[in-house]
Amino acid sequence: MTLEQAKFEYLLRLGDSSLIIGHRLSEWCGHGPILEEDIALINIALDFVGNATSLLTYAAQVEGKGRTEDDLAYLRNERDYRNLLLTEQPNGDYAMTIARQFLYDVYTYFLYEELKNSKDETIAAIAVKSHKEITYHLRHTTEWMYRLGDGTEESHQRLQNGLNELWMFTSDLFDMDEVDAILIKAGIAPDLNKIKEAWEKRVKEVVAEATLQLPTSIAKQKGSREGKHTEHLGYLLAEMQYLPRTYPTAKW
């Protein structure tokens, strides 16, 4: 695998994760529990989709086959998607969404902090920009972790259920392969073991402060690096890609 191939693959991983979690959040549009949260979630969704646009634009450029960011977003099949399994999990109830966003926000907070120092200038520039936004996302979800976890008996139980259900997808966040090895060596991507340490520490702190229990389940599901997804991604793509695939020349 060449450096360019590794970079393309890596950009898909970052870009697809943003795109898919952004699309998931956008499903809350008009359904938020209160108006302010509806607006907040959609603003955050917009940040993710914006971040995906810049990453996939760059991915298409690195690939050099004349594809655009829209081709990558709308014309690839499920198995070609490289988003993390966590990002495609359904919204569930509001607590489940908060649990998913929290686990992911802590991850991107530390990951993009490292990517700011990437030797690839474009990745570093995107990371600097995105990290400012991620800081707001993390603050938002952390507050809801406290509010729901340390709230009523029901909100506590629902958030605990969300954490328990999603926990099996967290090892997928730190899975590394040849792509990572090549990019770590080139100073382009960070070692995910380092991110994992920071992630575990922060998650543990917030979970304890929110009077919740860290899930103990040992079941692990990985596979996003090879495009092995849970059943949920196919349904999401069917909805997201329907219009551009049915009306390929549509413009708006």
Partner: peptide, 13 residues
Amino acid sequence: MISQFGSTACKAL
């Protein structure tokens, strides 16, 4: 503060 996210991405309410 009512919400960290306002009418547009750059504003809080």
